[in-house]
Amino acid sequence: MHRAQVPVHQNLVMISAQNAKACNKGDLDFSLCGHCGFLFNQAFDLSVLSYGDSYDNTQSHSQMFERYMDDLVYDLVENQGVRNCTVVEVGCGKGVFLKKLIGYPGANNQGIGFDPSYVGDAEFFDGKLKFVKQFYDANCAEVSADVVICRHVIEHVPSPLELLQSVRAAISSRSHARIFFETPCVDWILANKVVWDFFYEHCSLFSKDSLSTAFEMTGFHVTDVRHIFEGQYLWLTAVPTTGQHAEFSAAHTVALAQNYKNDEAALLNNLAVLVERLSQNGGVALWGAGAKGATLAYLLDPNAETIAAIVDVNPNKQDKFLPGSGHPIIAPVMLKTMGIQHVILMNPNYRIEIEKQLSELQINVTLHEWSAS
């Protein structure tokens, strides 16, 4: 799959439409490994990215996503036995998830979050939780981690095996350590033909088999890998090993990728027709100013002529502009003010929450979900 000159960032907070349209751009040139099913952007250039203070991919403003994180923490503590442990989170972002885990009542965990772009206080919970503004690598071996967690990081890394090798080196001989990784599932994207789930920041995409292969190749034994978040994400559990690695098949992913490739042009055309029709019959907005919304807006309406606005519940993004296309980002209440009659949902997982918000605001719009079937 090839897309020329797309925005390299989907979650930068842009203060003007002019700055938004002038953001850095790069090519998508996704290739699939027929042996393991790993999908990667071979045109990816890490140097054009800048994850600084203006980058905001916070999802916890959604009550549904907040509950989802709470459920993950509950599972780790109550079902996986993450108690009385030293927990390291690789790429902790703003530390929301790790704060929930270390703050879980009675778990008695302590934690260290590593992220070069972390912004906030260095310590919480009387020093039981610390944040370090650096990458987690082999130089962090002195941190005696019982549990290593890495959520939604590996898809941003152009050399994922190097990341896993660094984690393996950092835990060195601690054979009791457990590893938990979360990442989007490329099989789900391909099977559901979600054209807006391919974007520049996600340069490395995995299926269950390719993710398992990567871990097994780098000194881990995969004990479990399953779909979560209504199938959209993978959750992998592994332990360190010195044994031989298992081999997995890529046949299923290869077949899905071929079907997607055959249909992508028609899918984009049908989406463009839908957006044009809705724009002429009451106006249309997208719900979600994250990676999905930014990608679809740029694909269908790069000059911000058809889609009226992008709705988002994150107050830090409201009254700002979408990277690439420059669409205005609005609070839900502004739908009524702008007279928009149609809203396309970027992620159906949030439908019930969105319907509740609209009802409370007494806003009557038609919600649309895209289906490739």
Rank of each mutant, 00 (worst) to 15 (best):
D197R: 10
P158K: 06
S207W: 02
F215T: 03
A191H: 13
S207N: 04
R178M: 04
A191C: 09
F215Y: 07
F215E: 00
P160G: 11
S166Y: 02
A177H: 04
A169Q: 06
C203F: 02
S166Q: 14
T213R: 08
R174C: 04
S207F: 02
C203T: 12
H176W: 07
F198Y: 12
W188R: 09
L205D: 06
L164D: 06
D209F: 07
A214E: 08
V167I: 15
P158Q: 13
R174P: 01
D197F: 12
A214I: 05
V167L: 00
F206V: 01
A214D: 07
K193P: 08
P184N: 01
L164T: 07
F180W: 11
A177S: 15
S210A: 07
V157G: 06
M217Q: 14
I189T: 14
A191F: 11
T213I: 01
A191K: 15
W188M: 07
S172E: 13
I171F: 03
R178Q: 13
S166L: 00
C185A: 15
L163T: 11
T213K: 11
L190F: 09
N192H: 15
L211E: 12
V186K: 01
L211C: 14
F198N: 02
F198L: 10
W188F: 15
I179A: 05
I179H: 00
H202F: 05
E162D: 14
P184H: 03
H156W: 05
S204T: 06
L190K: 01
S210P: 08
F198S: 00
A177L: 05
S173V: 09
E182D: 12
I179T: 04
